[in-house]
Nucleic acid binder design. Structure first.
Lengths: 161, 161
DNA sequence: TTGCTCCTCACGTCACGTGAGGTGGC
DNA sequence: TTGCTCCTCACGTCACGTGAGGTGGC
């Protein structure tokens, strides 16, 4: 396998705004292994390769990656569920380009309707998660309150901000 | 290995309020394998065994399990981090029993102080997670708002409750 | 030549899932 | 005997981590 000619700048040349895997991984805060794995399982295909065979990640790729990581870390979804959600995202992009290409008023209404449904479904999932976290937080707050009362009773100066 | 005598009731007898692994797992919504694994890695030791060798889970065990599962599912912690938090919990219980056994006013103040610190640390972690989720939710809400505007523009009847 | 980043295997790990084969009382 | 739940191995899986061995341009 012949290699890349990263001539001027090691990461980005004036002609090529894409990132190599190392820079992309660093920007996203993951390992290069994670990026290769996401490609292996078909979650995130780098939009190109350099002549030398190096993966090239575009800004759009990085946005998709950020979305994957939020779904993974914040929502705690496994990659199969994330794949489903990304499919919905892709569907939205598809509808958007359909609209841009020019389409009937009726069709536009249908499209907006579908987009609203997809968005609504995702918000439901986030809302459920938020409620669980809120409940957990409330529990801890209640415990904190009990401690504060105890501290007050004992005349302890409360150090907490 | 000789086996258990689950004489009257398959799960709970009048004399023994503990649960066998199957019932405990069902109540907690996990598999029996998960319970055996948590024992294997030292996260949750069943408080007893029946003469036949069956694991016996008490109410206290189930509470500890529920705590583990919330830390796992809501906070997304791995078992090593959960182990650390449980150690703090155990420390609180220790302090509490120390107080119950009777202890000086000065010592009680120290104990309340330590308990407040442990609780504060846990609330910090939850607060971080909550902020991430809130940001994610806000993003989805903003998208929803854009869709609503589009729908309004197109004269689509909004179906969302 | 040395240092750097990239490449493709490929084995290791964590948190379990999933049988395999066997036991003990209704 | 059949059905049920339990037991202990033990191999499989998901989402990567971590070298192993090699390439290509400063």
């Amino acid at each position: 396998v012949s290699r890349d000619t990263h001539a001027v700048d090691p990461d980005v040349t004036a002609a090529d705004p894409t990132l190599r895997i190392g820079a992309a991984a660093e920007r996203a805060g993951v390992s290069t292994r994670t990026l290769r794995y996401y490609q292996e399982v078909g979650l995130l295909e780098p939009s190109g390769r350099s002549p030398g065979g190096d993966r090239r990640y575009s800004e759009a790729d990085l946005e998709r990656l950020a979305r994957i990581l939020r779904l993974r870390d914040v929502m705690g979804f496994d990659l199969d569920r994330i794949r489903v959600i990304l499919a919905a995202d892709d569907r939205i992009l598809e509808l958007r380009s359909e609209v841009r290409a020019g389409v009937s008023q009726t069709r536009r209404r249908e499209i907006v309707h579908e987009a609203i449904e997809l968005n609504h479904h995702q918000r439901e999932l986030v809302r459920e998660k938020l409620q669980l976290l809120q409940a957990f937080n409330d529990e801890l707050e209640a415990t904190a309150e009990r401690y504060r009362a105890k501290a007050d009773e004992l005349g302890v100066t409360i150090v907490e901000p």
